[in-house]
Simulated assay, not measured.
Amino acid sequence: MVNLPAPGRRVVVRYLLPTGQATDALGELLSADESTLVVDGKRGIERIPTGAVIAAKEVPPPPAPRARGAAQENP
């Protein structure tokens, strides 16, 4: 198994789908054990079999939301 930070941290996990295609889960690591990683991201809660994990690492918090009118003020 890859080294993971403690639950509660923001992570990106690259894993293989049953088709063999790789995909990523980005979000808060809720839990991890010998069989499953649980990540809460924009797609909802994802349960990822540890055997499908290719790589995983902690990532920084998301950037702050941009002001809505900022792009229009600087054409």
Results as ranks from 00 to 15, higher is better:
residue 54 I to Y: 06
residue 71 A to Y: 10
residue 12 V to L: 03
residue 75 P to W: 15
residue 31 S to F: 08
residue 69 G to N: 14
residue 44 G to P: 11
residue 19 T to N: 09
residue 3 N to I: 12
residue 7 P to W: 00
residue 46 E to V: 14
residue 18 P to G: 04
residue 4 L to M: 07
residue 8 G to F: 07
residue 11 V to F: 02
residue 16 L to E: 11
residue 6 A to G: 03
residue 3 N to Q: 14
residue 53 V to H: 00
residue 23 T to H: 08
residue 12 V to I: 10
residue 38 V to D: 10
residue 23 T to Y: 08
residue 41 G to Q: 05
residue 38 V to F: 06
residue 61 P to Y: 00
residue 33 D to L: 07
residue 12 V to F: 01
residue 75 P to H: 14
residue 38 V to Y: 09
residue 14 R to E: 05
residue 8 G to C: 09
residue 51 G to M: 01
residue 9 R to K: 11
residue 59 V to S: 00
residue 27 G to L: 07
residue 56 A to N: 04
residue 17 L to Y: 02
residue 21 Q to T: 10
residue 55 A to H: 05
residue 62 P to E: 02
residue 66 R to I: 01
residue 49 P to S: 09
residue 10 R to T: 04
residue 11 V to K: 03
residue 44 G to V: 08
residue 52 A to N: 09
residue 34 E to H: 13
residue 68 R to H: 12
residue 50 T to G: 00
residue 43 R to H: 10
residue 65 P to E: 03
residue 36 T to I: 15
residue 5 P to K: 03
residue 4 L to P: 05
residue 24 D to M: 11
residue 3 N to K: 15
residue 13 V to W: 01
residue 43 R to Q: 06
residue 75 P to A: 13
residue 24 D to N: 15
residue 2 V to A: 14
residue 65 P to Q: 05
residue 30 L to Y: 13
residue 27 G to M: 05
residue 19 T to L: 09
residue 27 G to E: 08
residue 45 I to T: 14
residue 56 A to H: 04
residue 8 G to S: 08
residue 56 A to E: 01
residue 22 A to R: 08
residue 64 A to Q: 11
residue 4 L to T: 06
residue 75 P to D: 11
residue 8 G to H: 07
residue 11 V to I: 11
residue 18 P to I: 03
residue 1 M to R: 02
residue 10 R to A: 02
residue 61 P to Q: 02
residue 15 Y to M: 03
residue 25 A to F: 08
residue 29 L to A: 06
residue 58 E to A: 08
residue 34 E to F: 11
residue 18 P to L: 00
residue 19 T to K: 08
residue 10 R to E: 01
residue 43 R to L: 13
residue 50 T to M: 11
residue 6 A to E: 08
residue 74 N to G: 12
residue 62 P to V: 04
residue 75 P to L: 14
residue 64 A to V: 09
residue 69 G to C: 12
residue 41 G to H: 06
residue 32 A to Y: 13
residue 1 M to D: 00
residue 50 T to W: 09
residue 50 T to F: 09
residue 7 P to Q: 07
residue 8 G to D: 05
residue 17 L to C: 01
residue 64 A to Y: 09
residue 14 R to A: 10
residue 50 T to Y: 09
residue 20 G to F: 06
residue 32 A to I: 11
residue 61 P to F: 04
residue 27 G to A: 06
residue 20 G to T: 07
residue 37 L to F: 14
residue 68 R to S: 09
residue 74 N to P: 12
residue 24 D to P: 11
residue 13 V to Y: 03
residue 11 V to N: 03
residue 60 P to M: 02
residue 36 T to G: 06
residue 34 E to W: 10
residue 31 S to N: 13
residue 43 R to S: 06
residue 51 G to A: 04
residue 41 G to V: 06
residue 46 E to W: 10
residue 49 P to A: 08
residue 20 G to C: 05
residue 7 P to Y: 05
residue 6 A to Y: 03
residue 50 T to S: 02
residue 18 P to S: 01
residue 61 P to R: 00
